[in-house]
């Protein structure tokens, strides 16, 4: 029981950080379950995918009510992410845990590195614009397919790819891009979660515990959104991600140094 309580605590932390830093909780959930509790990589990814659907649903209900999400854009790009997610989810069934660990470590390095580079302190809530012209749809579709692929393969949201592309390439305001990505993540996660589910890789008790923890954590995070400076948290979390990347990489190349 203590083991499950600790797993849930990790979920709370993942949800809390995800909400404060605007990242997907999957980046933390998968290494937490795999490296700390020794859950098989595929089961950790499956639990993360279900947790992602839950956080996306919770956040999207608020974003949609306040009309931050661009529903039509989300559905259009969602078509590419779901295809990508199915390809990624099917591919994951053929890849062994070591390969997945190596790929995951690369994504963690990218996420940690971009978090260190990104200037912190700006709350996404400050920006809301309804007057914008979306450009460069083909690049958006390509990036969305890639994001879906990574999501299905590694159990992360894919916002790491879609948000910057929507904002920088498609010229969608950051807040709208972030909220739209949050909406897309649920649909994307759903597409590949069923592949893991029917392969018997969803551990119900672990997944239930993580989902509840993540949701509690993300609510806690929204409460502290304006009370904690993300510029302080960002480098700390980036270092944690890079350390997890290192551990994951060692696991991937089968070097159990520690």
């Amino acid at each position: 029981m203590i083991e499950y309580a600790l797993m849930g605590a990790g979920g709370v932390l993942a949800g809390f950080l995800a909400s404060l830093l605007g990242i997907g909780g999957g980046l933390f959930i998968v290494p937490w379950l795999n490296l700390v509790f020794g859950l098989p990589m595929h089961q950790a990814i499956a639990a993360s995918l279900v947790a992602i659907i839950a956080t996306s649903s919770g956040a999207s209900s608020v974003y949609l009510r306040n009309r931050f999400s661009d529903l039509k854009l989300g559905l259009s790009l969602g078509l590419a992410t779901v295809w990508g997610a199915i390809c990624g989810g099917l591919a994951a069934g053929f890849l062994n845990a070591q390969v997945l660990s190596l790929l995951f470590s690369l994504v963690l390095i990218y996420a940690g590195g971009s978090m260190l580079k990104r200037p912190g302190g700006d709350s996404p809530e400050k920006e809301k614009s309804t007057d914008y012209q979306i450009r460069n749809y083909p690049a958006g579709y390509g990036a969305s397919f890639l994001a879906g692929n990574i999501s299905g393969l590694l159990g992360i949201g894919g916002g790491l790819v879609t948000v910057p592309v929507m904002h920088l390439v498609m010229r969608v305001p950051f807040k709208i891009a972030s909220a739209t990505s949050s909406f897309m993540i649920g649909i994307t996660g759903c597409a590949s979660a069923f592949l893991y589910y029917f392969r018997g890789e969803v551990n119900f008790l672990v997944t239930g515990t993580i989902v509840l923890g993540v949701l509690f954590g993300s609510n806690l995070g929204s409460f502290f959104l304006f009370r904690i400076k993300s510029s302080i948290l960002r480098p700390v979390f980036a270092v944690i991600l890079l350390l997890m990347a290192f551990k994951m990489f060692l696991k991937g190349v089968n070097l159990g140094l520690f």
Binding site: S60, S61, V62
Partner: peptide, 24 residues
């Protein structure tokens, strides 16, 4: 449509959370 979806997501996730909590 936005309101309908917000409602569905809010109460759908609340329902799922309640069931998961009871299951745990």
């Amino acid at each position: 449509l936005y309101k309908k979806l917000a409602w569905l997501l809010k109460y759908g996730s609340l329902l799922a959370m309640t069931i998961l909590f009871l299951g745990i």
